[in-house]
Simulated assay, not measured.
Amino acid sequence: MKIRVYYEDTDLGGVVYYANYLKFCERARSEIFFKNNLLPVKDGCHFVVTEIKAKYIKPARFADILEVETKVLEIKRVYIKLKQIIYKNSEKIFEMEIKLAFICNDRPSAIPQDFLNLFEKL
């Protein structure tokens, strides 16, 4: 997924604020669902972040065009692990591994089959 860096994404120096890399990755995960005519919420149940490991490699700046790549590392009954990489001009500038648990009524729950099918295609 391509993302343009807007002024609101940057700090006083015109560099992307560190938390916004996480937002860019979140948008990319949402787009995976939207492009498949799904929402990342089902019957009041949804994914929550339970673990994250991020590595900031090089900065992105105002007006840059970034590409977010998402890969599946592991799929289990109630959680998935993903690796997301952000590139600027084909150069890796950020990467993270994230674990997402599927939650219903504040408890881990089985991921719906249509969601599993979606992630298995990545």
Rank of each mutant, 00 (worst) to 15 (best):
L73E: 15
P112F: 14
M1Y: 11
N89P: 07
S90V: 06
K121R: 14
L22H: 13
A54F: 01
E8T: 06
A101G: 01
E95D: 15
V68T: 01
F33E: 06
I80M: 11
V15D: 04
I65A: 06
E95H: 04
N105H: 11
D106C: 05
A19M: 09
V49I: 15
I103L: 03
S90K: 14
Q84T: 09
V16L: 05
E51Y: 10
E91C: 09
K23G: 02
C25Q: 01
I85Y: 00
F24N: 00
I57C: 13
N37Q: 07
P108K: 07
I65D: 13
P59V: 08
G44S: 12
K81F: 02
E91S: 13
K71T: 14
Q113C: 02
E51L: 08
H46W: 08
A110H: 02
K71A: 08
F94R: 09
Y21V: 00
N117C: 06
C25I: 04
I98T: 05
K53N: 14
K83Q: 15
V5S: 00
L116P: 01
R29H: 10
K88I: 05
K53E: 10
L82S: 04
K88F: 07
A101V: 01
L66V: 09
K99F: 02
Y17V: 03
Y79V: 01
I65F: 13
Y87E: 10
E8R: 12
F33W: 04
V72W: 00
Y18S: 09
I32W: 10
I3F: 11
S109W: 13
I111E: 01
V72Q: 06
L66S: 05
Y87G: 08
Q113T: 13
V48T: 14
E8C: 07
V72Y: 06
R29I: 12
P40V: 05
Q84V: 10
R107E: 13
I111F: 05
F94H: 10
E51A: 12
R77I: 06
I80F: 02
K83V: 03
Y21P: 00
Y87K: 15
I93N: 00
L38N: 09
T70L: 09
F102S: 05
D11E: 12
K88L: 10
V15T: 15
T10G: 00
G13Q: 15
F119N: 01
Y79D: 11
A19I: 11
R107C: 10
L66A: 06
D9T: 04
Y18D: 09
L66R: 03
K88G: 01
A54W: 06
V5I: 11
A60P: 02
F34K: 08
Y21R: 04
L100S: 11
I103P: 07
N117L: 13
Q113Y: 08
P112G: 09
M96T: 03
I85D: 09
T10C: 13
C45Q: 11
R27C: 02
K81V: 12
I52T: 15
D9E: 05
R4N: 10
R27P: 01
Q113G: 02
L122E: 07
Y56V: 07
P108S: 10
K92W: 03
E74R: 15
F102W: 14
L73G: 09
E26K: 10
